[in-house]
Every structure is written in C-alpha cells, then in structure tokens.
Amino acid sequence: MYKNKLSNFDIVLLILGGLILLFIISPLLSMFLATTPLQLFETTQDQEVIDSIWLTLRVSFLSTIFFAIGAIPLAYFLARTKFKFKKLVNGIIDLPIVIPHSAAGIAILGFISRDSVLGKAASSVGLNFVGHPVGIALAMAFVSIPFLINAARDGFINVPVKLEKTALNLGASPFRVFLTISLPLAWKNILSGLIMMFARGLSEFGAVVIVAYHPMITPILIYERFGAFGLKYARPVSVVFIIVCLVFFILLRTLSKEKESNNA
C-alpha cells in the first residue's frame, strides 16, 4: 500500500486538499491568536457569558433528551416498517436541514405564539413559549432533530431482524426485545446522533434569534456583542464558546472511532 514516490496526481490532491484545510483552520486560528490570555480569562469571569453558556448547554441537552423519547421510536419504526409514503416521511425528516434556519424560526414562532393553539394552551397555564427557554428548546430541536433520527434509523437498520425474531421466540415481549436487543445494538449510532443533535442545538442562531432573543444563548450573545461593541468584544466570547463546542466535537469523533474499531 505504501507509495515511495508521489505521483503528479497525488501532488494535485495534496495542494487542493491543503488549501481547503487551510480555509477551515485559518479564520479560527487567527481568531484564537488575536485573543489574549487576559481577554480569555476576563471572559470566563463574565457572569453574562457564563450564564449564557450554561443556558445554551442546558437547553440543548434537555431538548435533545426530551425529543429523543419520541425520535428514537420513530427511527425504529422507519427502520423496520415498510409503508407507502416512507420516502415522503424520510424527506420530511430532512426538511429542517435544507430550509433556511431563519425561516424555520419564523415557522416555530407562528407555531408557539400566543395566537396559535399551542400558544393559547400554554398561556392558559401562565406560560409564554416566546422568549422562554422552552421556545429556545423547540427551535433548537426543530433544526437538529434530523441528525438524531437519521443516525438512529441507520443504527436500527444495521441490527439483524433475525436477532429480534430470536428474542421473541425466546419468550421476550416486543417491548423487551426493543429495550434489550435493538436499542443496545443500535446504541453507538444513537449516541452519535444524540451528540450530533446536542452539538447542532448548541450552535443554532437563526431559528432561536427569532423565537427568543432573551434569555440569551451564546450564539446570540456573540452577535449582540459584535453589534454593540464590535469585533474585539465579540471575539473572546466566540473563542470560549468554540472551545466548549470543540470538546463535544472531539467526544463525537472519539465515539465514532470506537464504533469503527468495534466493527472491524
């Protein structure tokens, strides 16, 4: 497999690939380099920043967990059942990925505003989803749930149906088969999907800004600092938040690597 000499084609690949990598790395790197350790330290002491990062983490985490309760069974259903409009349903699930997120925000706002059925029901118990963490969670879930459903569906498809049939034949109920056979065997994919959904929720701006400017999640805080004080003030918050996101990104990569080595 090893090549001692690089062919011209290899050189072209290296140059083009290198340029793309540079394109990804350089803006991030320059931002890191332009931020002094003192600025970083001050930012981590800034209560508004800390609050917003915690809010973002908390809301994204809870919305991921809450929506997983329905998304995972839906993924299982899609993996196991054949029906007439399955392609259409799969297309609908991918819809949030392809539509502009600001438009998604407008759609969510219409869905939860006080004029809507849901909004009316919520306000009758004294809740207003607009400008509320629940509204943020809905907006985050809307744009990020396809990542979970798709990953979980692929995971369930990879579980041999025969194992489920065997478990049924051994006396297990369909519910127990799902919990003890299908779910554990698809778990790595589901976990990847959960982390992906969570990470995608963390970084959402477009949909959330329309549903809830306040309380302020970090992407909105960055935008606000930029608008009010300029690049210099937005940069340290961005760097801190990127570090937080990177932790989850690395976690995700480590998990999928583990999956590959287990499958090998």
Binding site: K162, L163, K165, T166, A167, L170, G171, A172, T180, L185
Partner: peptide
C-alpha cells in the same frame, strides 16, 4: 437458526439466561 442468532452484545451466560428473565 442456521446462523445461530447469538446476541453479540451479551456474554455466553447472558445469552443463555435471556429466556429466564421473563420467568
């Protein structure tokens, strides 16, 4: 089954114990 259908995420003992959980 011909391909045995052993649950790959369980040990041998857990596989054998699988039908007993219901009882």
């Amino acid at each position: 089954f011909q391909d045995y259908s052993i649950f790959p995420h369980l040990t041998v003992k857990q596989n054998i114990a699988y039908p007993l959980k219901r009882k």
